[in-house]
Design a protein around this nucleic acid. Structure first.
Lengths: 212, 212
DNA sequence: CGCGCACTTGAACCCCTTCAACGGGCGTGG
DNA sequence: CCACGCCCGTTGAAGGGGTTCAAGTGCGCG
């Protein structure tokens, strides 16, 4: 088993808490595309993402996915569901191979992790959830062009590494729409692209105007 | 000045903290439609809603408002912005007359309210923010029919008190759309309505199917 | 070479908003 | 008391932003 104490997240934990945690959790290896939990499931475990990356999204009745959040280590997964005993709000899927600590939270001593440090970590985690949700909410009432302009301005570097299909998922639009907008921007000489997905910004001001 | 100790929220506060709070805050009376703070403003105060009700929403470039949350006492307002020193995510507007404690948070002693109890209250507050945001996110990719069906199933009682226009705002759709859907449901004998906005559910199962 | 995948492009479609017109209820002022 | 204006709800028609569907291209790789 991995040495919890060696993970920065746990440095402030007492030996007693670490032991209790070890006794009531397992470190699980996931592969890419594995589902950690599904929305609407009743929570059983508190997850702690130790290694890898996961996507958090919601699915609607037509199977369409709404991307909400990409979570990186070390962070909680499913914490609200567990603490408030309400169904998971969303589905969490591994992007890469992951190591996730699966904690049987309800078996832990009630006093475990009720200290101020833990609580603060929780607040931080919730803050990042809210920020992510706010961005989703923002994007839900921006046009697709505005969203793409924003993405270009903020995340230019990510174009090299990702496929258009992946980016369009994160922007919650179809690949067709994404493609049309990029070519539209190119035609209007706001950006330039080569065949390698390298984007260069030509007319930053107009992009800023579009993105607001 | 109102006696803070008489408010359930403050019963666990020490006399010292109460005094410090009083010394660094003012109780402000707001009227309906007053704005407590605007999105993108830099946070100056931590607000605590003592009496009344407020709406939290976002506005986009075209002036369209996206309803996010209706907050009732006693609850924080703008807490994330203050704690993390980031601009307010949204705009908060009084629905009715309100009493709001305006706390000069940055003048408070660093140790103020850093106790576990306060932290837990904060977590509760953040939880309700996230729940509200999740609903907004839902509504951004559920159809209008699905949203109305959900609302009928969950908030039947609110029909009497509110105008259709107000409800449609909360559901983030136009009054026209809301009206059309209600009449559609009536035509399909899923619900019945009288002239007083009293709704009765006739076919709960179909409504559940629609709402998913 | 052939297959699969990513991207592109066009056309149809759909959901919802917008715009416009209208009816009814209610309060206010003449 | 009626007249008027206003707000709320209704209904129709048009428009728009994005998705869906379908077909086609180009590229990499076994």
């Amino acid at each position: 088993m991995i040495e919890l104490k060696s993970i920065p997240f746990f440095v402030n934990f007492s030996d007693k808490d670490i032991k209790m945690l070890k006794d009531n959790s397992t470190l699980v290896n996931y592969n890419a595309n594995d589902i950690v939990y599904y929305e609407r499931d009743k929570p059983k475990y508190l997850f702690l993402l130790i290694e890898g990356g996961v996507n958090v999204y919601k699915t609607n009745s037509k199977g369409r996915q709404l991307h909400i959040h990409t979570v990186n280590p070390v962070d909680f997964l499913g914490e609200l569901a567990v603490f408030y005993k309400i169904p998971y709000h969303n589905t969490t899927e591994c992007i890469t191979k992951c190591k996730i600590l699966k904690i049987d939270y309800y078996k832990l001593n009630k006093n475990f992790c009720k200290d101020l440090f833990f609580c603060k970590e929780l607040v931080n985690s919730l803050n990042s959830r809210i920020t992510a949700l706010m961005q989703v909410v923002d994007s839900s009432f921006l046009t697709t062009k505005e969203r793409v302009a924003r993405f270009i301005l903020k995340n230019l570097n990510e174009f090299k590494d990702s496929t258009y299909t992946d980016i369009s998922k994160r922007l919650n639009m179809t690949p067709e729409t994404f493609s049309r907008i990029l070519n539209d921007f190119k035609r209007k000489k706001l950006i330039d692209m080569d065949s390698e997905h390298n984007i260069t910004i030509i007319d930053k001001n107009t992009l800023l105007e579009i993105s607001e």
